[in-house]
C-alpha cells in the first residue's frame, strides 16, 4: 500500500515541476519560489555531502579517533578557518595563505596532468599513418582527423594576427570546430529533451496515472 507520505512526496514533486514549467508562459511567483527553494536545497545538499564525504573521513573522524597521531591535521584545519576570515574585511588578508596553498597545489598538479593527458597523449594519437585504415572512409576520416587537429590548434594561435595566406588554415580550423560544436549541440538537445520526457512521464504516470 502506498503511504500518505509517498503520495505527499509525489504532490510536492508535481507542484515544483509545474511551477518551473510555468516560466515558459512568463516569470511568476511560483517560479520564483521554486527557483529560490532549489538554490537553498542545492546549497545544503552540497554542504552535507562535503561534510560526510570529505570533512568527516579526512579531518574530524581522524582527530576524534587518534588526536595525537593526527595532530598535523590541525594545520589544514587552521588554514580552513583562515579561509573563513575572508568574511570580515579586517581579517580578509589571512585567507591569502590557504588560497595560495590551494592555488599552488592546483597549478602544480594541473600542469603535469594536462601536459601528459591533454597535450602529449593527444599529439601522439594524432601522429598516425592515414593510409593504414582498411577502407576509403577510414583513410578520409584519418586525413580529416590530422587536418582538423592541426588547423584547429592553428586557429587558437593568437600571438600573431592571421592575415592573407595564414588565414586559410585558421578558417578550416573554424569549420572543424563548428562541426564539433554542432555535434555537442545535438547531444545537448537530446539530453535536455530526454529530461523533458522524464518530467512529462512523471506528471502523466506517477502523478496523474494517465499512462502506465
Amino acid at each position: 500500500m502506498i503511504s500518505f507520505m509517498n503520495v505527499f512526496g509525489i504532490w510536492i514533486a508535481a507542484f515544483f515541476t509545474i511551477s518551473i514549467f510555468s516560466f515558459l508562459y512568463k516569470d511568476n511567483p511560483f517560479y520564483k519560489l521554486s527557483e529560490q527553494i532549489f538554490v537553498g536545497l542545492s546549497a545544503a545538499y552540497w554542504l552535507v555531502y562535503i561534510i560526510y564525504s570529505i570533512m568527516m573521513p579526512n579531518l574530524f573522524t581522524k582527530l576524534i579517533e587518534d588526536f595525537s597521531g593526527n595532530a598535523i591535521l590541525l594545520i589544514p584545519a587552521g588554514l580552513g578557518l583562515m579561509m573563513l576570515m575572508r568574511l570580515h574585511p579586517k581579517t580578509q588578508w589571512l585567507s591569502r595563505y590557504p588560497i595560495s596553498i590551494m592555488i599552488g597545489t592546483t597549478a602544480g598538479i594541473s600542469m603535469l596532468r594536462y601536459m601528459k593527458s591533454d597535450i602529449l597523449e593527444q599529439v601522439t594519437a594524432t601522429m598516425i599513418n592515414p593510409f593504414s585504415a582498411p577502407d576509403a572512409a577510414g583513410v578520409v576520416g584519418n586525413l580529416l582527423l590530422i587536418i582538423g587537429t592541426v588547423t584547429g590548434v592553428y586557429f587558437f594561435y593568437f600571438s600573431k594576427k592571421q592575415e592573407g595566406i595564414f588565414q586559410i588554415p585558421s578558417k578550416i580550423g573554424i569549420w572543424f570546430l563548428m562541426v564539433s560544436f554542432g555535434a555537442t549541440f545535438g547531444y545537448t538537445v537530446m539530453a535536455r529533451v530526454s529530461l523533458l520526457i522524464g518530467r512529462l512521464e512523471f506528471l502523466l504516470r506517477d502523478w496523474l496515472h494517465i499512462i502506465t
Binding site: I103, G104, A107, G108, S110, M111, Y114, M115, S117, D118, I119, Q122, V123, A125, T126, A137, V140, G141, N142, L144, L145, I146, I147, G148, T149, V150, T151, G152, V153, F155, F156, G173, F176, L177, V179, S180, F181, A183
Partner: peptide
C-alpha cells in the same frame, strides 16, 4: 563518422590548446 573523425579532431585541437594554456598559466602562478 562525424563523432569519430571531424568531432574528435576539433575536440583534440581544443584539448591541446587548452592544455597549453593551462601549462602556461600554471607556470605564471608558480
Amino acid at each position: 563518422f562525424i563523432m569519430e573523425y571531424p568531432n574528435s579532431a576539433a575536440q583534440r585541437a581544443i584539448l591541446i590548446s587548452a592544455g597549453l594554456g593551462i601549462v602556461g598559466s600554471s607556470l605564471r602562478i608558480i
